[in-house]
Design a binder for these strands. Structure first.
Lengths: 252, 252
DNA sequence: CGTGTAATTGAGTCCCCTCAATCGCCGTGG
DNA sequence: CCACGGCGATTGAGGGGACTCAATTACACG
C-alpha cells in the first residue's frame, strides 16, 4: 500500500503572495499589504522544464518575473556560437529590466523552474508610484552588480584551476547557508548544472572543466558519486587554490 | 603679449547644481529644485591627480560621489597582484554604494578627476525619502549591470584580437557620440589610458596588448602618432574582428 | 538491457603568458 | 646642447596552459 503522490504546484495553481516562499527576499519583500494586493492583480505563474528557453535576446519583453523555484541562467551567444553565461538565477532573483522593450539576454531554464510573472507595463506603472518596490529593486540590482563584477575578476584573471575551485566553494557555501550549518570537511552536494553549463559559466571548454575535476579527484581533494554528486574531502586545500586567499574563500 | 590663463575650476571652487555640466545625466538628473537644494547642503568637491588612489577596497566609505570631469577606474586586485579593471568611470557616473559601510573596489584616478561628493549618511537618508533619486539611481545601476555583463562576455569568450578591437571601436564610438557625428573612416582620437590600463581592462598582459596594436598597424587598420594617439584607417575591417558581427560593432 | 547523450581521456596545436632585452620619449641636470 | 636616467612601450624567444579534434567510457533513461 502506497501513499498518494504529493500534490505538485503547477503553472496553473495560484499562490497568494502572503503565503509565497520567496516573500522575504524577492522584489516584493518590502511591499505592504496593499501593494501586495496590487501585485496579485498583475501576476501569473509559468513553469518551464529543464533545458527549455524562457526568453531570447531581442524578443519583446512582455513580462518581468521572480524565480519562485528551480534555477535559470542568463547568457549571451556570439554569432559563431560561443556562449558565455552571465548570471545564475535562483529563487527570489528577478528577471527582466523595467523600462526596456527588448530582452537583452537569453534566459534558459537550468532545472525545472517556476516563475512569478508580472505583466510589464502595469509593473512599470506600479514601480513608478511605489517607493518600496523601487528601493527593493535598487538594492537587488546593486547586489547583482557586485556579483557580476566578482565574476569579471574570475573571467579576466583566474586560471582554469582557480575558476573550478571558485565555483565549487561557491556552491558549497550556498549549500551550507541553505542548511544553516558551517562549511566543514566531508561536505556532499549536487552540482546544479552540467559540465557544459559549468564551462559556459567559467569561460572554459567542457574538456578543461572535466580535466580539472579529474585532477582534483586524483589529488584527493574531492570525490565523485556519479557525475553530478560531489564530496569535498579537503576544503582547506580546495580553498587554497581559488586565488582569493584562503581566508576569503572559506568565509563570506 | 599673451592672454591671461583661463581660470581653472579647482576642488575648492563651488558650482551650483543648476549650472553643473553633468546636471542632465548624473544621479541628480531627475531632481527638482527643492531636491537640488538638499543636495547642495551635503555636497562638496574633491580633485585627484591622474594615477592617485581615490578609495581602497575595505576602506570605510565616507562619501558617495559623481564624476564631474576626468576619468577614474574601478578595479580589484588578487593577493598575488593580478589586477582586473571592473569599470570605467566617466563624467556623470556614480561612485559608491548607498547602504554599505565598506568600499568594495579600488577606485583610482585614470586622469585628473573632479568628484562631486555627498556625505554618505545624509545621502542615504535623502535617498530613502526621495523617489526621484531612487528611480534615477536604479536606472543608472541597471545600465551599469548591462555594461558589466557585456564585459563578462568579452573577458570570458573573446580572443586577444577581439578584445583589442572591441575596446578601440568602443572608444571611437564614444568619441563620435561626443562630437555628435557619425562613425567614419579616418577617425583620430586619444586613448584615455595607458597600455597597462588597457591590459587590466581586457584581461590581457601589456605585451599582448602592444603586440596586437602593432599587428593592426602592420595590417594598415590603424596608425599611431606617438603612443596614445590613434587613427583608425579601416573601420570596416576593424569592426569585422570584434567577434560581435560587423553590423553590431558599427552601430549602437 | 540497449541506446543516446554526457563526460572523460588522449594527442597535438596554438594562443597568450613569461622573461628579458631594447627602444623611444621626456624631463633633468651637467 | 647633449648626456643621462627613468618610465612606458615595443619586440623577441621560449614555454605552458587551455583549446581543438577525436576516440572511448560512463551514465541516465526508456
Amino acid at each position: 500500500m502506497s501513499l498518494a503522490p504529493a500534490p505538485r504546484v503547477t503553472a496553473a495553481s495560484y499562490v497568494k503572495c502572503t503565503n509565497c516562499e520567496i516573500r522575504e527576499r524577492a522584489v516584493c519583500a518590502t511591499c505592504d499589504a496593499d501593494e501586495l494586493r496590487q501585485l496579485e492583480e498583475i501576476k501569473y505563474y509559468r513553469s518551464f522544464d529543464a533545458g527549455q528557453p524562457i526568453m531570447f535576446e531581442g524578443d519583446e519583453m512582455h513580462f518581468v518575473a521572480s524565480v519562485v523555484t528551480g534555477a535559470a541562467t542568463l547568457s549571451r551567444t556570439l554569432p559563431d556560437g560561443r556562449i558565455q553565461m552571465l548570471g545564475l538565477l535562483l529563487p527570489s532573483d528577478f528577471i527582466g529590466r523595467p523600462g526596456r522593450d527588448l530582452v537583452a539576454y537569453d534566459v534558459t531554464a537550468l532545472r525545472d523552474v517556476t516563475l512569478c510573472c508580472f505583466r510589464r507595463k502595469p509593473f512599470e506603472a506600479m514601480l513608478a508610484r511605489t517607493p518600496h518596490l523601487n528601493a527593493r529593486l535598487l538594492d537587488m540590482s546593486l547586489d547583482e552588480l557586485d556579483v557580476a563584477r566578482e565574476w569579471m575578476l574570475l573571467l579576466g584573471r583566474k586560471t582554469a584551476r582557480e575558476k573550478i575551485t571558485c565555483l565549487l566553494t561557491l556552491v558549497a557555501r550556498r549549500k551550507a547557508a541553505l542548511q544553516r550549518r558551517k562549511l566543514a570537511d566531508g561536505l556532499t552536494f549536487e552540482i546544479p548544472m552540467s559540465r557544459e553549463a559549468m564551462a559556459n559559466y567559467l569561460g572554459l571548454t567542457i574538456e578543461t572543466v572535466s580535466r580539472q575535476i579529474s585532477a582534483l579527484r586524483k589529488e584527493k581533494i574531492l570525490e565523485l558519486q556519479g557525475t553530478r554528486r560531489i564530496t569535498l574531502l579537503d576544503l582547506t586545500r580546495l580553498a587554497a587554490q581559488t586565488g582569493d586567499g584562503i581566508d576569503i574563500a572559506l568565509s563570506a
